[in-house]
Design a protein around this nucleic acid. Structure first.
Length: 874
RNA sequence: GGUCUAAUAGCUCAGCUGGUUCAGAGCACCUGCCUUACAAGCAGGGGGUCCUAGGUUCGAAUCCUAGUUGGACCA
């Protein structure tokens, strides 16, 4: 006997191994099939699976499995990205533990350590995805630092440089003093902090008094180039043209007027520090102020600061405040709410810093990327993100693509000794250009120095949909021609700009075409309290533990039950439990069917009817599901299947055809039931791949290597609406009888008698056996008169009576019937009013008016029946 | 501060082009059942000022305006 509790662990491992052995997820271009491709958002090599990945990859797997079953050439390309800052930080930390400092080893040595690290830990997340059931074509696994993709990035750089889109320039960039690298604007996260606003007095050089400025960063006073006041500020008119001395270091600076300064904020006097503030930098450019950079790359003060040299910026702040206070320069300290930028990767407070970096011009690239999203050539799901996308793309700024790291693609820029830059795919090529272009025939490779910096990780991931098919290096190859553009991209809205927008740009730049047609943006997985799941809060369950506990199918369905596109999902283990229970329900339905004994023969007539009914129900639901799917309502789709299986198939259909204990079932009925089961498993397979495979394999003997993964997705067919409504009515009668049993506290085992007063008794002939079975009736009889001493109810226009020997208060019974009558009469009145309204009849659609008329007719019939019953009571 | 988005049952959310078969689902809750597939189950039940105030309309949970309160993104 099969265990009555479904145990997923062993079954899931077994089938994943089977799928891999039989290469069921492998794909290659097939001109006879329609291609369907997805590229995975490559997780960081440093990453481990978290709930966001689970959701995201489950959705991708649903899409790809369904496409595969629909006969498309489905290809899901997996891979990882090298995550330059995060990985470099991990490798540096690992080396430190071994007693090795990065500065003591060569770039080559460092990289070999990094690759070693990647080999060891970089594949973990992909292995975890297999536990989830992800049907990626694993033979295609790519990595952004592998040679081919590396080369694609280099070539991209060279080409964009030659096109004039990449330039090198001194700019104020976001400096991460911990990662010791520049960051792009998008890698900065602004956080609200409670800061202090220090009011500091600067003495006038002529000794005629002082001015007071307000700043949150007193440690930068040594970098001040000027004091600025608004020319319209009457308080400070007398100061124009005067000079002040910076406290502690006594350096003299001028007071300059500029409208930029707000009259209201602080004291109305602004210290201008061009080296350490973006706005001040621009002000400095305007007034030709000197730029004094007092910070080292690691955030400590340098000798230009004159004091506290070598001290960290935050420590220096404390000490300077103390000293200013002691020496009487600190006038006042005010609490102040402000925001600081922090590094997305290291969390360090960003330092605005002037430096020489490489930039990519975005204006031309952004144009088609904006246009084709706004006109829905590329569809964002949900569409509300179009707004955000637009505002970003319309205000796009040049992209700082250089990073002061070693782990990444090294910028292919080579410098001659005089500083001349030559951009070429390698040193040899650069030398060739140097010789030809600059006539430097004596030059050798050693005279060229390559730029030590690497490229931003996103500068390789933006090529991902193209580069995984080798479409940069070899733009005409069979793979890219077949699979590109990819179909759907599934990712989080948090990287809509970082990644999605840039892939779109790259798509148009390289292929003149969109990289994918639909972008499905998932919500953020939050905990029950609505907090974002994070390592630091420790509120994220370990996905592998969840899979262990509920099975991958349970976790997948649990996530999908509550995952509408773009809306955050408040994750609760309860959902996985519900998923597990669903698995168990299916498992037990299968146990029932599998355990039946067979007797030769055709269907019983009521079984034939039930089979027809279920097929209609199935077809009707399939239409709904396909509709949900076309709109990416994955959550609604799985709920529809859940209800179809649990309520309609298990709760109703199986109850109808189930023979009495130890009685056999007709062969024809069993075959039909197995066929239905098979269809249901195919329908459910994309969501719950493991249990559906297990059952499908056990339904009948399968050929070697055959799998539900490649079985045909149900196509559906017509549904008999008359039959559907007949069964609706049937189930309503059954419910009413059960309700009587329940409210009157009767045993479920007690068979009841049912009398029906109807003008059309023949309609009940076919369904009578079902009614008797599911409502547990001893018989069904027809009557022309109202039955007294009975519980009654009305369905459509027919009256039903369940005779019971109960001592009930007739007044109570009457009151109940009157209450229902009252409601119905109110209802009738409102429909009548509506139909009497000429403007309604004129303006509303014809079928709507017809439906209202039908409602009215139904209500009239029902009222008539109720009145009959009431008369009898009186 | 700017832009966007949301508010429906105790909780999480559906509700699509306005139409009382449209006020719904799941969970939670209450009652009764260990009925030979399933107690991870079965049967039944209660529960809502559809955020507030106006407006459009024959008709508003749905459209418009304002407000309140969340959330996201940007600065």
């Amino acid at each position: 006997m099969i265990d009555k509790n479904y145990a997923p662990q062993e079954i899931e491992n077994k089938w994943y191994a089977f799928w891999m052995e039989n290469k069921l997820f492998a794909s290659k271009p097939n001109p006879n099939k329609e291609p369907y491709s997805i590229v995975i958002p490559p997780p960081n090599v440093t990453g481990v699976l978290h709930m966001g990945h689970m959701l995201n990859n489950t959705i991708q797997d649903v899409l790809i499995r369904k496409a595969r079953m629909e006969g498309k050439e489905a290809c899901w390309v997996p891979g990882t990205d090298h995550a330059s800052i995060a990985t470099e930080a991990k490798v540096v930390a690992m080396l430190k533990e071994k007693g090795i400092e990065k500065k003591d080893i060569s770039r080559e040595e460092f990289l070999s350590h990094a690759f070693e690290w990647k080999e060891k830990y970089g594949g973990i997340i992909l292995e975890q995805l297999k536990k989830l059931g992800a049907s990626c074509d694993w033979d295609r696994t790519r990595f952004t630092m592998e040679p081919k993709l590396y080369q694609a990035v280099i070539d991209t750089f060279v080409r964009l440089y030659n096109k004039g889109l990449i330039y090198r320039g001194v700019r104020m960039v976001n400096w991460d003093p911990q990662g010791k690298t520049a960051l792009s604007d998008e890698e900065v996260i602004y956080k609200d902090v409670q800061a202090k606003l220090f009011h500091i007095q600067y003495p006038l050089s002529d000794g005629s008094g002082s001015v007071t400025i307000a700043t949150t960063r007193p440690e930068t006073i040594m970098a001040d180039s000027a004091i600025c006041v608004n020319p319209a500020d009457e308080r400070y008119l007398h100061l124009h043209g005067k000079k002040v001395k910076i406290p502690l270091i006594d350096r003299e600076i001028s007071i300059i007027p500029d409208e930029y300064v707000s009259l209201e904020f602080g004291t109305g006097c602004l210290k201008v520090t061009p080296a350490h503030d973006l706005n001040d930098y621009e002000l400095g450019l305007k007034h030709k102020l000197p730029v004094i950079d007092i910070l080292n790359d690691d955030g400590t003060l340098n000798e230009k600061a004159q004091i506290y040299v070598g001290v960290d910026r935050f420590e220096a702040r404390k000490r300077i405040v103390k000293e200013l206070n002691e020496k009487g320069f600190l006038v006042q300290t005010e609490e102040y709410k402000s925001t600081v930028g922090t590094s997305e990767r290291t969390g360090a407070v960003i330092e605005p810093k002037l430096s020489l970096q490489w930039f990519l011009k975005m204006e031309d690239l952004a144009k088609p990327a904006l246009e084709n999203v706004m006109n829905d050539n590329i569809q964002l799901v949900p569409a509300k993100f179009k707004n955000t996308y637009r505002s970003w793309m319309e205000n796009v700024r040049d992209w700082c693509i250089s990073r002061q790291l070693w782990w990444g693609q090294q910028i292919p820029a080579f410098y001659l000794q005089d500083g001349t830059v030559i951009v070429a795919s390698d040193k040899k090529e650069a030398l060739k250009i140097a010789r030809e272009k600059y006539q430097l025939f004596a030059l050798v490779e050693d005279d060229l120095t390559q730029d030590p910096d690497v490229l931003d990780t996103w500068f390789s991931s933006w090529l991902w949909p193209i580069s995984v098919f080798d479409g940069i290096e070899n733009p005409e190859n069979e793979e890219i021609s077949y699979y590109y553009p990819t179909n759907d991209l599934v990712t989080g809205p948090d990287i809509l700009f970082f990644w999605v927008a840039r892939m779109i740009m790259a798509g148009y730049e390289w292929r003149g075409e969109l990289p994918f047609r639909n972008v499905y943006l998932t919500g953020i997985v939050r905990d029950k309290l609505g907090r974002k799941m994070s390592k630091s809060l420790g509120n994220s369950p370990d996905p592998l533990d969840l899979i262990e506990q509920f099975g991958a199918d349970g976790v997948r369905s649990g996530l999908l039950f509550s995952a509408p596109a773009g809306n955050d999902l408040l994750f609760d283990e309860k959902l996985c439990e519900q998923g597990r229970n669903f698995s168990n329900k299916i498992w037990n339905a299968f146990r029932l069917v599998k355990g039946l004994q067979i007797e030769e023969g055709n269907n019983l007539p009521e079984h034939t009817l039930a089979i027809e009914w279920f097929q209609s129900k199935f077809n009707q639901t399939l239409v709904e599901i396909q509709d949900h799917f076309s709109k990416f309502r994955i959550s609604d789709a799985i709920l529809a299947i859940y209800n179809l299986i649990w309520d309609d198939f298990c709760g109703k259909y199986l109850e109808i055809i189930k023979p009495a204990y130890q009685s056999p079932i007709r062969k024809e009925t069993l075959e039909a039931t197995l066929n239905i089961f098979d269809q249901l498993m195919r329908l459910l397979h994309p969501y719950m791949p493991f249990i559906t495979e297990e059952i499908w394999q056990n339904m009948e003997e399968r050929k070697a290597g055959e799998s539900i993964c490649r079985a045909e997705f149900p196509k559906g067919g017509p549904s008999n609406t008359g039959l559907l409504s007949q069964f609706e009515q049937l189930f309503e009668i059954i419910s009413k009888v059960r309700e009587i049993r329940n409210t009157k506290q009767l045993s479920p085992k007690l068979a009841l008698a049912l009398y029906i007063k109807t003008s059309n008794a023949s309609q009940y002939a076919a369904i009578e056996p079902i009614l008797i079975k599911l409502a547990n009736l001893e018989n069904v009889q027809f009557t022309d008169n109202v039955v007294s001493d009975a519980q009654t109810f009305v369905v459509k226009a027919d009256q039903f009576f369940v005779p019971l020997e109960l001592n009930q208060d007739p007044a109570e019974v009457k009151a109940e019937a009157e209450k229902e009558l009252g409601y119905l009469e109110g209802f009738k009145k409102s429909v009548e009013a509506k139909l009497a309204n000429e403007r309604f009849v004129q303006n509303a659609k014809a079928d709507l008016v017809e439906r209202e008329r039908q409602k009215l007719a139904d209500a009239v019939n029902k009222i008539k029946s109720l009145k009959e019953i009431l008369e009898k009571l009186a």
